[in-house]
């Protein structure tokens, strides 16, 4: 089957997919906001509290969590730290909402019977006021990033609808991973937000490619130019997608893992937002301008 005629016949139907994803994401993020008053669940670095990592192989995470919860009488979150490459447990991470770091260390020692030293113990303590201002600062950074990126796009294409389509696509690329992260119950850290900034950069790459080909090229017809840009764009996306997916599996660092996960989800949805949504908008835009006849060869 010919991709060009497929696209010509079905571009309106394809448009349904991004709309479903967009509505789905808005419902997930909106209901989360409604329930908690927050855009997403923040980890210690953005909220304040203590995150302690114990680098010992034989710790029972559930038992430790129970012990600490009874002892400290607050919500404690203990997760395992695994090395995927060797499929071994490396240690556990203990997170707690308030700043009782000394108590925490002693209690972990009591629960596990392991003496904690510089060699096997890392700790991060963030005051809640600082966590809050980090959070505010990073949200501001995301908004400024998005605004600056919007300026770049409008200057480059100088027409409203194609530029707005790029921004809408970038918006879906941000909100969909956010919704998935929320459904997975993952707490977002400072580096995670940095990953969303990278998503802005990655997301617009393929859209810029598409928009440039459609608006500024004269060879072939509208549909063949879209298919042509998809060939290039999908290669780009697959190269990055597979590389980061493998890196996600390999890395043991929680910071890197979260960054890679967010970008991988964003790249997946970017295929939909670019080729189902953005290209649809461009086809509609060109038809409306009545310029498309001009391009038939």
């Amino acid at each position: 089957m010919n991709w060009e005629s497929f696209l010509e016949k079905n571009y309106k139907k394809l448009f349904v997919v991004p709309i479903i994803l967009l509505v789905f994401s808005l419902i997930v993020v909106g209901s989360f906001f409604y329930r908690t008053g927050e855009l997403f669940e923040r980890d210690v670095s953005l909220k304040g509290g203590v995150s302690a990592t114990i680098y010992e192989k034989n710790i029972d995470a559930e038992k430790l969590e129970k012990f600490l919860e009874e002892k400290l009488n607050t919500d404690i979150f203990v997760r395992k730290l695994g090395d995927v490459a060797s499929n071994k447990n490396i240690g556990v991470v203990v997170e707690i909402g308030d700043e009782a770091s000394d108590e925490l260390k002693n209690n972990i020692e009591e629960a596990t019977g392991i003496s904690l030293s510089r060699e096997n113990f890392s700790i991060e303590v963030v005051s809640s006021s600082l966590g809050e201002s980090f959070y505010q600062g990073l949200l501001k950074a995301v908004l400024i990033s998005f605004a600056l990126m919007a300026v770049v796009i409008f200057v480059a294409f100088r027409s409203f609808i194609p530029s707005a389509a790029v921004l809408l696509s970038a918006f879906l690329d941000i909100i969909f991973p956010l919704a998935i992260i929320e459904l997975l119950g993952i707490k977002i850290n400072a580096a995670g937000i940095a990953a969303f900034l990278l998503v802005i950069g990655y997301s617009v790459d393929t859209d810029i490619l598409l928009t440039t080909k459609v608006l500024k090229r004269r060879e072939g017809n509208l549909y063949s130019r879209i298919i042509d840009s998809a060939k290039t764009g999908l290669t780009m996306t697959f190269a990055t997608l597979t590389a980061l997916s493998v890196a996600y599996v390999v890395t043991t660092s929680f910071v890197l893992k979260q960054m890679f996960l967010i970008i991988v989800i964003a790249l997946l949805v970017d295929i939909v937002s670019t080729y189902f949504m953005n290209s649809g908008i461009l086809i509609w835009y060109c038809k409306k301008r009545g310029e498309h006849e001009k391009f038939w060869s």
């Binding site: 501001k140 950074a141 995301v142 400024i144 990033s145 998005f146 600056l148 990126m149 300026v151 770049v152 796009i153 480059a156 900034l197 990278l198 802005i200 950069g201 617009v204 790459d205 810029i208 490619l209 440039t212």
Partner: peptide, 12 residues
Amino acid sequence: VAYAATLAAMLP
């Protein structure tokens, strides 16, 4: 254009 967009996203 892609470069300018990435730069814009990272600067803040």
